[in-house]
Nucleic acid binder design. Structure first.
Lengths: 201, 201
DNA sequence: CGTTTAGTGATACGAGCGTATCATCAAGCG
DNA sequence: CGCTTGATGATACGCTCGTATCACTAAACG
């Protein structure tokens, strides 16, 4: 047999190629042949490592998820000590397409999200769209900030967490749609966060 | 020549068929053949009234726009006297997929919105994505409510209008994505609106 | 009345898609 | 060494898509 190549590395190489296409030309342009060309391999190789296109999409989605959580935790870390406030800020601002990397991630993520709209079966065959977890995490931290007196007592942590997440999603869409740039979106988000959290003394 | 049929009515019939498909099976399922079948006409007829698919999509988008603005103004009217508050409430809640009709409209609208992501040229060939107008309209009404003392003085009308619109979009996506139902989304939106507007005495 | 022509049907074309088939190549093992 | 088998290349199949072609029908008009 030839070279005895590292399968996981090859799969990653191909999966990343798909993500690159998804974040530039859109996920619907990520055909098997395009992915092969982008990864610099033959069509046959893509088929060899992913028997079907769905498997390829699923693997790429997993890679995307890794990069996403990576970015979120890096963003939180960059804000200094881990407090309720920094977790909320870091999580939401990381999800906004403000720099080149986040535009890439958001574009790819949106591609998968809209794919699920049209092929719900694919989502059913594999559980766990995880925004729910994010939402309860945010709610927890908002409640903590509330008890620490950093957030007004009459806010509902769960409703507010959901609103912030939906707001961030909507802002991301508007940036991707060219309605405004990342900086403007960030200003809008920070305005809302600023009136949720009491100013730091 | 045969029957001398009303062109505008035929075009509408076909355009509505496309919208029906877009709001059930998704816009990517709206092929020329599917639209023809849904409208109960032959493929040739669809080609006859819309020389190209792009023309068909554009016409359907126009019909959708009509229905959307119709629904928004109906929603405002239903809230009683036209005040800044009712305009903001009516506009935003009308855009939320809470009942069958709004689910249909939102689904179709989302389909077109994501289509623009992948074919930006089509959007360029025809101006006017109108969320900007909506945003400045909301900002105007928020500023008016502010002068009337119904909204706190330190809110920025433009930033807040943008945030409310993005929030509504994000909530809509979450409903369409099955993350929550329309009632829950409405609760979240009303919570935010309730803390923007001072309670009515 | 006969010719023009708006409207309609049947069918074909070329391209792109996911997937399948078949042959080939080279490294490892007995 | 020779056979097995993991990895790869070339190419084809069947389908669906948007669009194009060609013929036909029947109402309108001089």
């Amino acid at each position: 047999m030839p070279k005895r190549v590292d399968h996981e590395q090859r799969r990653r190489q191909i999966g990343e190629a798909l993500l690159r296409i998804a974040s530039t030309r859109g996920l619907q342009s990520a055909t098997m042949r395009e992915v092969a060309a982008e990864a610099g391999v033959s069509l046959r190789l893509v088929q060899y490592y992913f028997h079907t296109k769905e498997q390829l999409l699923l693997a790429a989605l997993a890679y995307l998820g890794e990069q996403l959580t990576e970015r979120v935790s890096a963003s939180i870390r960059a804000l200094g000590p881990v407090t309720a406030r920094t977790v909320v800020y870091g999580t939401l601002t990381a999800a906004l397409p403000t720099d080149e990397e986040s535009v890439r991630l958001t574009r790819a993520y949106t591609g998968f999200y809209t794919l699920v709209f049209s092929e719900p079966e694919m989502a059913e065959r594999h559980g766990a769209v995880y925004p729910d977890k994010l939402e309860s995490l945010l709610a927890k931290h908002i409640a903590a900030a509330q008890e620490a007196g950093e957030v007004a007592g009459d806010v509902d942590p769960k409703l507010t967490a959901a609103a912030l997440l939906a707001l961030t999603n909507g802002l991301g869409s508007s940036v991707l749609g060219g309605q405004r740039n990342g900086a403007a979106a960030l200003r809008i988000l920070e305005d809302q966060l600023g009136r949720l959290f009491r100013p730091l003394d």
